[in-house]
């Protein structure tokens, strides 16, 4: 059987909220070491990669590997039943047809249970090789979210220029062009190498969808290398990571 209990069920609720507008039906892989999920949006431009380690759960048991095909759209509807400070337990049998979700408040005097029907999905699993990113930067997730929203009002596309010492977001639209440059700390500047700078263009519409995860973490990590998708990574405290991959645009 499989059973995983999170003391703070709102974390799981926030994760589902953060991916529901990108992916619809997904396979969640449950293994003895944790839960993971990989799925692309319908246009194959973006990819979601979630990993939650078993050590972050209050209780975790998974006797054998299970693939749980689930509608994220429906799961998001069920998540509306999760209130602030509720714990959440996910459980199913070894050959499940549904996933049971149990939410309980802190006083243990209110328990909500819902069985979500599972679905069979073709597995479209991409192998993401170990990549050495030439440019990585960590910034405030709220600030990143705000600037992506503001830039989207000016242009559909943003050009990222990231080095180890700064990140620059440049846009060009019908009304004009401009950029926001954010410098990182002096300590990091001392170790910088100019050749680390990479420039790539991305669709702001997707970045705004990724930013629905900003309430999961105060910080967001951006990783970039030439000729490879951008990685936007949110640490889910003591549980794991939620990563979004975004294919660049080809610019003339």
């Amino acid at each position: 059987m499989f059973e995983a209990k999170l003391t703070d069920g709102t974390i799981f609720k926030k994760i589902i909220e953060a991916i529901k507008d990108l992916v619809t039906d997904v396979n969640i892989d449950a293994t003895p070491t944790g839960l993971s999920l990989q799925a692309m949006d319908s246009s194959h431009v973006a990819l979601v990669n979630l990993h939650l380690g078993m050590e972050g759960f209050e209780r975790y048991r998974c006797d054998r590997n299970l693939t749980l095909g689930i509608s994220i759209t429906n799961l998001a509807k069920v998540m509306k039943l999760v209130n602030q400070n509720d714990s959440i337990t996910l459980k199913c049998e070894d050959e499940p047809t549904y996933l049971t979700i149990v939410c309980q408040n802190q006083k243990h005097d209110r328990t909500t249970q819902f069985n979500v029907n599972l679905i069979t999905l073709d597995s479209e699993h991409l192998g993401i090789p170990e990549t050495e990113y030439t440019s990585e930067i960590t910034m405030n997730s709220g600030e990143f979210s705000k600037l992506c929203k503001e830039l989207y009002a000016l242009s559909e596309t943003v050009e990222f220029e990231i080095s180890t010492t700064f990140v620059k977001f440049a846009v060009e639209g019908e009304i004009g062009s401009g950029s926001i440059k954010i410098q990182t700390s002096a300590d990091e500047a001392e170790t910088s190498r100019p050749e680390d700078t990479v420039k790539l263009s991305f669709a702001l519409r997707y970045l705004n969808l990724f930013n629905k995860a900003y309430s999961l973490s105060n910080q967001v990590k951006l990783s970039m290398a030439a000729e490879t998708p951008l990685v936007v990574e949110y640490e889910v405290e003591s549980l794991g990571t939620l990563k979004y991959y975004l294919a660049p645009k080809i610019t003339d």
């Binding site: 194959h44 431009v45 699993h125 294919a247 080809i250 610019t251």
Partner: peptide
């Protein structure tokens, strides 16, 4: 003029 790449351009299916 911009064109959008896809994930399949970079990664292979397992």
């Amino acid at each position: 003029m911009t064109e959008q790449h896809q994930m399949d351009d970079y990664y292979e299916y397992n």
